[in-house]
Amino acid sequence: MSYISLEVNCHEEFIEIFMAELAEIGFSTFQEKEDGNGLFAYSEENQKIEASQIEELFQQYESLTSVTYELGSVEKENWNADWEKNYQPIEVENKILVRADFHPSNPKFPTEIVVTPKMSFGTGHHETTYQMLNLMHDMDLKGAEVLDAGCGTGILAILAAIKGAGKVEAYDIDEWAVENTNENFLLNSVDSSIYKVWQGEVQTIPQASSYDLILANINKNILLADIQHLQKHIKKTGFLMLSGFYENDNRDILNECENCSLELISQSVRNQWSALLLKNNK
Rank of each mutant, 00 (worst) to 15 (best):
Y3K: 12
M136F: 02
D148V: 02
I49Y: 02
A161Q: 00
Y171E: 09
Q272Y: 12
L187E: 00
E34Y: 10
E70V: 14
G122I: 03
A208V: 07
H137I: 15
G166T: 04
N184D: 06
Y195G: 07
N259E: 08
L254R: 00
H125V: 01
N182L: 10
E127K: 05
I227H: 03
G166R: 02
W79M: 15
D252C: 05
T237F: 10
D82G: 08
K108F: 02
A160P: 09
I162M: 02
A160L: 06
I90G: 02
T153G: 03
F40Y: 15
D82T: 05
I218Y: 04
L213S: 02
N106R: 14
A81F: 13
K163S: 15
E145Q: 14
R251F: 06
V168W: 00
S266H: 07
L141K: 13
L277R: 05
F27M: 01
A100G: 13
L187M: 05
F121K: 05
E56P: 14
E7W: 08
T123Y: 05
L254V: 12
T116Q: 11
G124Q: 00
G26H: 06
E112A: 00
K236L: 09
A157W: 01
T181K: 14
I253W: 08
F18R: 03
S66A: 15
L213N: 04
A208Q: 14
K220V: 06
V190S: 03
N94Y: 07
A149I: 07
Y3S: 03
N106Q: 11
V74M: 01
N94Q: 10
F185Q: 01
L6N: 05
K48I: 11
E13W: 13
Q31S: 11
I90P: 04
R251D: 13
V197N: 01
H137D: 14
I205G: 11
L215C: 08
I173Y: 15
L276A: 05
Y246P: 02
I90S: 03
E50P: 12
I158D: 03
I214Q: 01
S193M: 10
P110T: 10
F109A: 01
S105D: 06
L71C: 06
Q199R: 09
T123R: 00
K48P: 09
C260R: 07
V74C: 03
H103Y: 01
H11L: 05
V197H: 10
E44M: 11
E169W: 10
E77Y: 09
G154V: 00
E201W: 13
A23E: 14
L262D: 02
K282M: 14
N180V: 10
L186T: 12
L215A: 10
E50K: 05
Q59M: 09
Q60I: 09
E247C: 08
F239Q: 11
A275D: 02
K48V: 13
I265R: 15
D172F: 04
E84L: 03
L254G: 04
K108S: 15
S120T: 14
G154F: 10
N78G: 03
K235M: 05
E91W: 01
E62A: 12
I162F: 01
I54P: 04
E12Q: 10
C257A: 15
A51W: 07
